[in-house]
Amino acid sequence: MAITINNTGKHLMLDALDTVLNTATLTIRSGAAPGAGNTATGTVLATITTPADAMAAASSGTKQKLGTWEDASADATGNAGHFRIVAGSTVIEGTCGGPGSGADMEISNVALQSGNPFTILTFTLSMAAN
């Protein structure tokens, strides 16, 4: 039998990430994600410090970004492929895509231009269903 956990347990684990995600460094990078346990790859296209209260309380086994995450000026020109959130030794990484793409993090435009603004539209952490 597989181990299962109810939503109460999932919410405890997801909400524990608040201290990690609040004021963490989020980079948007070109290319494919190398995996959170590996050295970062790709060109850094943008760098954002997440808000002090970055994520909403967990609900239904998920946790969504809270408020507006944006950068007034992208660092470089290129196509966004993945994101990397770093807080101390904790790394969270996933795919980037445009609106409606279904990527792990959706941004206003994957074709970033140096000096131009962009916004993180969606970012949701979830725990697998039982």
Score class of each variant (00 low, 15 high):
Gly42Met: 03
Gly37Phe: 15
Ala57His: 04
Glu93Gly: 03
Ala33His: 11
Ala87Ser: 15
Thr50Arg: 13
Thr47Tyr: 03
Asp75Phe: 01
Ala54Pro: 03
Thr95Tyr: 14
Gly42Val: 00
His82Trp: 06
Val91Trp: 13
Ala33Met: 10
Ala54Ile: 08
Ala40His: 05
Gly81Tyr: 05
Ser89Pro: 00
Thr90Tyr: 15
Leu26Gly: 09
Asn109Cys: 08
Gly94Glu: 05
Asp71Cys: 15
Lys63Gly: 09
Arg84Cys: 04
Asp75Met: 07
Gly81Met: 10
Ala52Tyr: 13
Ile48Lys: 10
Ala24Arg: 12
Ile48Cys: 07
Ala74Ser: 11
Val86Ala: 14
Arg29Met: 10
Thr39Gly: 06
Pro34Gln: 09
Phe83Thr: 05
Ala111Lys: 02
Pro99His: 03
Cys96Phe: 09
Lys65Asn: 13
His82Ile: 02
Ser108Tyr: 02
Ser89Gly: 03
Asn38Leu: 14
Lys65Trp: 15
Leu45Tyr: 04
Ile92Val: 13
Lys63Trp: 15
Pro51Ile: 11
Asn38Val: 04
Leu66Trp: 05
Gly67Ser: 08
Ala87Cys: 06
Ile48Arg: 12
Gly35Leu: 12
Gly31Asp: 08
Gly100Asp: 03
Ala46Gln: 04
Ser101Gln: 10
Thr62Leu: 15
Gly100Leu: 12
Ser101Arg: 09
Gln64Cys: 01
Ala76Gln: 10
Val91Glu: 14
Gly81Lys: 12
Val44Ile: 12
Asp104Lys: 14
Thr50Pro: 13
Leu26Gln: 09
Thr27Glu: 05
Gly97Val: 01
Gly102Pro: 03
Ile107His: 03
